[in-house]
C-alpha cells in the first residue's frame, strides 16, 4: 500500500498514525508537508490529528486552505482513499470532503479517554475488518468533536449507510445522533473523531483500532 501522511503546522498525531500504518503494512508511509502542491500516486492519504494552526479561527479551517488540500481533493475525486482522524476530520469537513462541521464539545472541555463505539457500516476500506454492530473501545482526545449537520444531511447519511461509527451510550461531545465517524458518498473518505492509532498496540491499553489498519492494507494495496 502506498500511503502518505500530510503534515500540517501543528499536526501532532502524524507520527502516531505513521507508526500504526507501518506496523500494519510493513512499509513506512511518506510524510508530506502541507506546503507541497502535488501528491505522488497513492493508495491512501491520511489527514492526521493535532492542532493545525493552533485551532485558531475554527478547528481545521486554515489547514483546509493549505496548498496540498487541492491535491487531496483531486485524489478523493478520482476515488482515492482518505483517512481523516480528529483534526483531520475537522479539516475534511471544512474542505468539503465530508458534510457537516465539528463544534465545541457540549461540556465545553477537552476530553481524552476511551469511549465505547459501535461499528455501523462494515462496507468500506476502513471498516471491513469489523462485524456489523461490533462494539469497540477507542480513545478520543479533542475539544471540538461535536459533529453537527442539518437534519436533512443526517437523514441522508443514515439512509445511505454512511455513518461509520456511533458512540455506544458513551457520547463524549454531544454529537448529533451519537455520530463518531462518517463516510463520503463513495465510502472512500472516512472522517472520525476517535484515534484508532492509539488503540493498535496492546501496550497502550487496547487493540480495537488495529483492524482498521489491517483492513486498509488489505483493501487498498
Amino acid at each position: 500500500m502506498k500511503a502518505a501522511v500530510i503534515v500540517f503546522p501543528g499536526s501532532n498525531c502524524d507520527r502516531d498514525v505513521a507508526v500504526a500504518l507501518h506496523q500494519a503494512s510493513g512499509t513506512a508511509p511518506a510524510m508530506i508537508w502541507h506546503g507541497d502542491s502535488t501528491l505522488p500516486d497513492l493508495d491512501l492519504v491520511v489527514l492526521p490529528g493535532g492542532f493545525s494552526y493552533g485551532d485558531y479561527l475554527r478547528v481545521g479551517a486554515i489547514a483546509a486552505l493549505s496548498p496540498i488540500m487541492q491535491a487531496v481533493r483531486r485524489h478523493a475525486e478520482r476515488g482515492g482513499a482518505v483517512f481523516a482522524v480528529c483534526n483531520g476530520f475537522q479539516m475534511a469537513c471544512e474542505a468539503g470532503l465530508l458534510p457537516g462541521a465539528l463544534m465545541s464539545n457540549a461540556a465545553g472541555k477537552y476530553v481524552c479517554r476511551h469511549v465505547a463505539m459501535r461499528v455501523e457500516n462494515t462496507d468500506s476500506p476502513f471498516t471491513g475488518g469489523y462485524d456489523a454492530g461490533q462494539r469497540i473501545s477507542i480513545p478520543v482526545a479533542h475539544h471540538d468533536g461535536n459533529y453537527f449537520a442539518d437534519d436533512a444531511t443526517l437523514d441522508r447519511l443514515e439512509g445511505e449507510g454512511l455513518v461509520a461509527f456511533r458512540y455506544d451510550n458513551d457520547n463524549p461531545n454531544g454529537s448529533c445522533r451519537d455520530i463518531a465517524g462518517i463516510l463520503s458518498d463513495n465510502r472512500r473518505v472516512l472522517g472520525m473523531m476517535p484515534h484508532p492509532e492509539r488503540a493498535a498496540d496492546a501496550a497502550l491499553g487496547g487493540t480495537d483500532g488495529a483492524a482498521m489498519f489491517t483492513s486498509m492494507v488489505e483493501t487498498l494495496s
Binding site: 502516531d16 477537552y110 476530553v111 481524552c112 492509539r198 498496540d201 497502550l204 491499553g205
Partner: peptide, 16 residues
C-alpha cells in the same frame, strides 16, 4: 483533571 489532558499522544504512554 487528567481526562482534560491528552495523556496518550505520541503513543508511548504505557501507564496512565
Amino acid at each position: 483533571i487528567w481526562e482534560q489532558y491528552d495523556h496518550m499522544v505520541m503513543a508511548d504512554t504505557i501507564a496512565w
